[in-house]
Amino acid sequence: MQKTCAPAPTNKKEYIADIGKILVAEHGKKKYYKPEEVKKAHRKSKWYDGLDFSCWGMSTYSSHSDFDSYHEQTGEVCNYIEMKTEMLSGLSNTTDVNWMEIPDLDIDASWLDFGDVFEGVLEGIGEFISAIFEGLSG
């Protein structure tokens, strides 16, 4: 019997920021982090209370192929594109976003690769958004 991933974190923006800070502190800035690194960061975060929903962090910080390989091994049924879309929409739907605070996160915004999410329709938007974040921090 296949397992499904746990429900998404309620505050996606805060979850992404917290996990990102831990990943950068422990592994430096990278375009993608291995699912095991994300899982470890989740366990070290304030979000871990016995419930493991690190798959949502993996959908944000891991590559599509690493995400799929991890889930093939664990037998969990999780959809990278759907989960990443939900996590990124959590960023845009947040009403209290102060974009000037984002550089303080000191995380690499290259994970905002929308190519997979929109299946090529908006190719290049990831680089565009990354450039905005890099401009804010510079």
Rank of each mutant, 00 (worst) to 15 (best):
R43V: 12
C55Y: 02
D116T: 05
I129D: 00
S69K: 15
E72N: 10
A131F: 06
S110K: 11
K39R: 12
D52R: 08
K44T: 10
I132S: 00
E72F: 09
T95R: 13
A6C: 15
G90E: 06
P9M: 10
H71V: 01
G120S: 09
G115I: 08
S59Q: 00
T4C: 02
F128I: 01
I107E: 00
Y80E: 02
K39H: 06
A17W: 05
A131K: 08
E86G: 01
K39I: 15
E37T: 02
I107S: 02
G50F: 10
T94M: 02
L88K: 04
L51D: 11
D108Q: 07
Q73H: 13
W111Q: 11
F133R: 08
D104W: 00
I132A: 12
L136R: 10
V38F: 01
E119R: 15
D68R: 09
A17K: 13
A41R: 01
L136H: 07
H27A: 01
A25V: 04
M1V: 14
S92H: 11
V117T: 05
K84H: 03
V97E: 14
D66I: 05
Y32C: 03
Q2D: 03
Y32E: 14
W111H: 12
V121H: 11
S110E: 00
K31E: 14
T94V: 07
Y80H: 01
D106K: 15
D18G: 06
H42S: 07
D113F: 04
G135P: 08
Q2W: 03
D104A: 00
S69D: 09
F67Q: 11
E134Q: 06
C78I: 04
S59V: 10
A41L: 04
Y32H: 13
L136N: 13
G50W: 07
G28I: 09
G124P: 12
S89C: 06
E101M: 11
I16F: 09
V117C: 15
G57V: 14
A25F: 04
K39T: 03
Q2V: 14
T74I: 02
Y32D: 15
I129T: 14
